[in-house]
Nucleic acid binder design. Structure first.
Lengths: 229, 229
DNA sequence: AAAGCAAACGCCACTCAGTGGCAAACTGCC
DNA sequence: GGCAGTTTGCCACTGAGTGGCGTTTGCTTT
């Protein structure tokens, strides 16, 4: 099945692991396709497993729930985010929020831009119209935020009782969700570059959200200012 | 069962509605008690329904899911929040975020402080250790935020494409969750007053979360400044 | 007060997500 | 080539959630 017959170089994962990976991707792709064609609830796991020719038991050894397979591309990105947060060198004078924002953008760049962006688009649109998936997505965010908070405390030595780092993380996640929403609402098939643009725009809108007032027609400058971080 | 035999005054709900309400409360109380004693997963709906002497069919006419009954006190508060947002008079010069914060505090005050606080405590602690409940809770927040956004647009005539009101709502919810966490971590049984205090503290920590830096030992003043809104 | 009506309830059967156990198949390694 | 450890498939089972339908209960009208 593999097109390149190059001999195994260093660090090549074992056959067992490659098979597992291939099963995982087949499940994700087939699931996203089926869930998009019909509804999430309109596709049973039995059918999905039949298509991929895998037993339901195996499905649950790969994913913890029906929702998880649909959100896998999204979750992969946040796992990359945690890695970035763990390993990126950071300038000392940066604010925590800036560090977090850069880690998100870096994580996006580590994803395979082609197929990944397309899959993320599918699962974002799916999440937007499927309560069960949205719930799972939000729960996963909570887990990720706690993991990220752990890293922050380790790397920056913050006060464990300080609410602000945690708030900064929640704000980051909220802004990124706004970006995803904007991105997925674009007509046709938006690219990974569009996502980066929309993410910057959402991050730029954060400060203004604290001071925004309602009475006046509200100047719209801040949110479209997609300038440097 | 009712202790006061005063004749029905104006606006008394019908017997049918009172019965329904009593069933609802019995389900909530029994569920919170059972879920707290054993685990959420350790209690089946069949058992819960047996205890309350209600058919499972009736349970699902009252609540949409097993998770919902556990989070009912929490959800009731957010529904009150929407009402406040809809009906409260607001000073023109206030920021949107301030309006939202005051609506949250007002909603808390409309809840029956005695029993409600105790129930909210149970479901907060439950949510903290039950993934399924946390997921449901977060999904519900998303629905509430969208409803609130609707009210904001209607009352303040904001640009539908402006990301900032939505961000402000997400930040509000995040801060309130921090407050709940702090509150539920207090030893013994914290009261509704404690919750108001913790909520103010969480709100006060918002601005500092955007500018917080990691290198220095981080001044802790802003988060403990529980001053006026 | 009796009858009529609509809402709510209980019961039954069913679908489907998710789990545990065990035997068969496969991979990695010698 | 054969052994050891992992992975997979199959089967049976639990429990959440739904639809249908006949019965009960509260409200209303005369």
């Amino acid at each position: 099945m593999a097109t390149d017959s190059a001999p195994s170089s260093v660090l090549r994962p074992t056959l067992r692991e490659r098979k597992k990976q291939r099963t995982r991707e087949a499940l994700i792709d087939t699931a996203l396709r089926l869930f998009t064609q019909r509804d999430f609830d309109g596709v049973t796991l039995d059918e999905l497993c039949d298509r991929v020719e895998v037993s339901k038991r195996t499905f649950f050894r790969t994913f913890a729930s029906k929702e998880e397979v649909a959100m896998a591309p999204y979750e992969d990105m946040w796992r990359a985010f945690i890695n970035e947060l763990e390993s990126r060198p950071v300038a000392a004078e940066c604010s925590i929020l800036q560090v977090l924002q850069e880690a998100v953008l870096a994580a996006m760049r580590t994803m395979d831009t082609g197929e990944w962006a397309h899959r993320l688009l599918s699962c974002t649109r799916l999440a937007g119209r499927t309560p069960a998936i949205e719930a799972h997505c939000r729960y996963f965010c909570g887990v990720t935020v706690r993991a990220a908070l752990d890293v922050l405390h380790r790397r920056f030595g913050l006060d464990p009782h300080d609410l602000r780092p945690r708030l900064a993380l929640d704000i980051l996640v909220a802004a990124f969700h706004r970006a995803l929403e904007t991105w997925a609402d674009r007509p046709q098939d938006p690219t990974a570059e569009h996502l980066a643009t929309d993410t910057l725009a959402a991050f730029a809108a954060i400060p203004g959200s604290l001071t925004l007032t309602g009475a006046a027609p509200a100047d719209r400058a801040p949110q479209s200012r997609v300038g440097t971080l």
